[in-house]
């Protein structure tokens, strides 16, 4: 498959202005990131705030220049690929002129492309026909986001980059947004989206790239990333007199990442975080005489907490 996006040791530092307590320092927002994304992939760029996701995407889009390293989009510098309309993006916030109407905004952005994409079609696709003559400043947050989405789709890009696209949307808007993205992905567009909504990565991306402190810490299929970092959570109840011994035994196992006991009425609620839920379940039911067994697949939320705590993955 063709390579859409390729970065090599991509790094960007920023100066943090001096304040009363310390001198000006430089921080590495993105630190030697190697990333290759191929045509047709749907990739989640996952990480907490300040992980460097937006800075990485800004470099991919040519909005800021790298401090060192290299970024290529369709084998060329980002500005060239943007100039041809092969890549476009939906940015996190701002970016619109409040005193223009919706259709004027679309018309303006469309006029910058060589092939002059049709405006009506873009308005229709984003469900903005009824709002075409409304001023941007009078749109709700969700409506503004739909307008940005329409602008991003104008050039019919091969690669679509979304920086926290559903921030500020309510549940319904979020749902219909991802339905539309599914539609775009089915048409063969490559999609890279930054998010800290872990559920969005789980439901929409085949591949997840997890970033922390400017570096890629995990990169693979979303299922694999979850298995690596998340494991499973096994819950069970046990009588209080057996709890202490059971916890000790569980904690000695190499496949148990963490085990805790929460006293409840007449019983202790065990919670075991493990990479091998079958083995732990068998042990709990056969030897430890635990009851009310529950197994949950670990969410990426847990993966975050896990990696952030510096525990072995």
């Amino acid at each position: 498959m063709d390579v859409c996006l390729d970065t090599k040791a991509l790094t960007r530092t920023f100066s943090v202005p001096a304040d009363r307590t310390k001198k000006a320092t430089r921080i590495r927002a993105v630190n030697k990131v190697d990333l290759t994304i191929r045509a047709g992939e749907v990739v989640a760029l996952l990480g907490p705030n300040g992980a460097g996701k937006s800075t990485l995407l800004d470099m991919v889009l040519g909005l800021i220049t790298p401090s060192s390293g290299e970024v290529r989009v369709f084998g060329r510098p980002p500005r060239e690929s943007i100039g041809e309309g092969k890549v476009s993006a939906l940015l996190q916030s701002g970016g619109l002129l409040r005193d223009l109407t919706v259709s004027e905004t679309v018309e303006l952005i469309a006029s910058t492309y060589h092939h002059r994409p049709p405006i009506d079609h873009a308005l229709e696709r984003a469900g903005l026909v009824a709002l075409a003559h409304r001023k941007v400043g009078k749109l709700s947050g969700g409506e503004q986001q739909r307008l940005r989405f329409a602008l991003a789709l104008l050039p019919q890009p091969d690669l679509l980059i979304l920086d926290e696209p559903t921030a500020g949307m309510d549940v319904n808007a979020r749902h219909s947004f991802w339905e539309q993205m599914h539609h775009e992905a089915h048409q063969g567009r490559t999609i890279v989206f930054a998010t800290h909504y872990l559920q969005e990565a789980e439901t929409f991306a085949q591949r997840t790239v997890m970033m922390m402190a400017g570096q890629v810490v995990l990169d693979g299929s979303t299922d694999w990333v979850r298995a690596q970092a998340g494991g499973h959570r096994v819950g069970a109840e046990i009588t209080p007199d057996r709890a202490e011994a059971a916890l000790n035994q569980l904690r000695q196992r190499p496949d148990v990442l963490a085990a805790t006991g929460e006293p409840a009425q007449d019983t202790v609620r065990l919670a075991v975080h493990t990479t091998d839920s079958d083995a732990v379940a068998r042990l709990l039911l056969t030897q430890l005489q635990a009851t009310r067994l529950e197994i949950e697949r670990g969410s990426l939320d847990q993966a975050f907490a896990h990696l952030t705590a510096g525990a072995p993955a």
Binding site: L61, G83, L91, S93, G94
Partner: peptide
């Protein structure tokens, strides 16, 4: 207000 970023995403 980020308009230059929006413009930066176009061939302009």
């Amino acid at each position: 207000q980020g308009w230059s970023r929006q413009i930066g995403l176009t061939p302009l």
